[in-house]
Write a protein that binds this DNA or RNA. Sequence first.
DNA 1: GTGGTCTAGACCACT
DNA 2: GTGGTCTAGACCACG
Lengths: 133, 133, 133, 133
Amino acid sequence: MMKIFALHIQIDPHSGLPIYRQIMDQIKYYQASGALQAGHQLPSIRELSKLLAVNPATISKAYNELKHEKVIEIRKGKGAFLLEPETVISEAMQRDALKRIARQFIVEAKQMGASSGLVREILEQVLNELSMH
Amino acid sequence: MMKIFALHIQIDPHSGLPIYRQIMDQIKYYQASGALQAGHQLPSIRELSKLLAVNPATISKAYNELKHEKVIEIRKGKGAFLLEPETVISEAMQRDALKRIARQFIVEAKQMGASSGLVREILEQVLNELSMH
Amino acid sequence: MMKIFALHIQIDPHSGLPIYRQIMDQIKYYQASGALQAGHQLPSIRELSKLLAVNPATISKAYNELKHEKVIEIRKGKGAFLLEPETVISEAMQRDALKRIARQFIVEAKQMGASSGLVREILEQVLNELSMH
Amino acid sequence: MMKIFALHIQIDPHSGLPIYRQIMDQIKYYQASGALQAGHQLPSIRELSKLLAVNPATISKAYNELKHEKVIEIRKGKGAFLLEPETVISEAMQRDALKRIARQFIVEAKQMGASSGLVREILEQVLNELSMH
DNA sequence: GTGGTCTAGACCACT
DNA sequence: GTGGTCTAGACCACG
C-alpha cells in the first residue's frame, strides 16, 4: 500500500493557471525530481479533493489529463499510479520541441531583464534541484 | 513611415493557445530578438487582421493586452508602437520569478526525455538566437 | 452565497462615457463608499448583462479592465471578487497625482461658476458620503 | 493685437487623454487661473499646430469644442478670442454637477489611499493656486 | 453554473 | 487613415 502522504501540493487560486493544471504541473514536478517514481500510488480523488479543498471534478480532470499524457495509469477500483516516463519522440522532434519551450523561457527571462549569466546560473541551480547533472 | 513588413506571424489554430495569445507571444519574441525595437510601429489592426485572416477584434485584444503589459503603446488614430522594456523589479524578485519559469522549462524538458547536456546545448542556441551572449 | 443584490448600476447612454467605463466607475464608487468590500462577489456577467440590458461582452470588458486595475479578481468558473485596495505609491507620487486630479476638479468647478465656499461645502458632503471624516 | 505668446501648452501623447482634450483643458485652466482673460486672443490654429507639433485638424477640433462650450469665440478671418465665463446654470443643477465631479475626484483619491486630511490640504493648495480664496 | 474566445458587422472618436 | 465601442450569437474551458 505505498500511499504517498508526503505529496503536498500547493494551489494558488490567484495564479491565473487553472487549478487542474497546477495539480498536473506539480505531480510532473515531483516525478521529474524523483520524489515520485514509477509504480507509486497517488492519493485518491476523494482524498486529494479534501486535502486541497478543491472540487473532486477538478482533481478528476487533472488525473484524466495525466492519463492521456501517459504520466499516470488509472486502475479501476485500485487508484492512480505513476508510469515510467516515456520518451518515444524522435531526436529531431525532441530538439524542435525543446527549442520551442526554451525560446518561451528565454523571451520571458529577457522581458524581466535577466542577463544571460543569471539565466545560466539559475538553470544550473534548477538542473541540480531536479537531479540532472 | 517605418512600416514593419518583415513581421510575419504564424497562427496555429490547433495549438490550443488562444489566437490573441499566439500573436502576443510572437510580438514579444520579435522584441526579444531585436527585430522589433522601441518606437517601431506595429501593423495596423486591420492590416494584421487581413494578413492573418483573423477577426480585427481578436488582433485588437492582443494589442490591448500588450498595452496592459506595457509592451506596446497605443495612440488612437495613429497606431501601435513598441515601448522600451521596463525592468523595475528587485534582484530577489527577479531570481524568484526566473527560478519559477526555469523549473517549468526543465520539468517539461525532462518530461520529453532530454538530457541535461541537450538542455544546455539548446539553451545556448536560443540565447544566441536572441542575442544574449 | 454573498450575492450582491443591492448593487444597482445606472447606465446613461447619452453621457458620452462608454458603458463599460460607467460600470467600472460605479463599481469603484461602491468600493470607495464601503458598500462593496474585499472578498465580496460581484454579479455574474450574465446577471448584470440582463439587469442592465447590456451585451455580456460589454460587462466582460468592464470586469476585465477592473482586473487589470487590480480592483477585482476573476476566478474562472467562480465569478468576480473584490480585491483589497492596493496602495504602494510613495508619498510624493501620491501628492503629485492628487494635485493633478484636484486641479482638474477645481478647474471644472470654476468653469461652472462655483465659489470656493461651495466647493469646500460639496467636498465635505462627499467626503462624508464616502466615510472619510 | 494682444497676442498670447506665454500660452505654453504641454501635450503628453502617453496620457491616454485625447490631444484635443488636453488642449481644451489647459486653455480652460489658464482661463480659470486668470492668466487668460476675456477678450484675449488665442494663437491661430496654424501657429499652435506648429508650436505643439500636432495636426492642425486636432487644434481645430479643440477650438471648435471650446466654441460650443462658449469658452471662446471664433471671429472669421480674425482668430479665436476668450469669452466671459458663463454661469447660467441653476443653483440646484450646479450643486448636482459639482457633486458628481467631486465624487469622481474623491473616489480616485481614495483609490490611491489618500486621507481626508491630505485631500483637504491639496484642495486648499489648488484653490490658492487658482486664486479662489 | 461561471468566465473566455472568436466571429461578423455596425457605428463612433481621433488624427 | 487609425483604434474604440457595442451588438448578437456560437462554442469552449473551468469548477
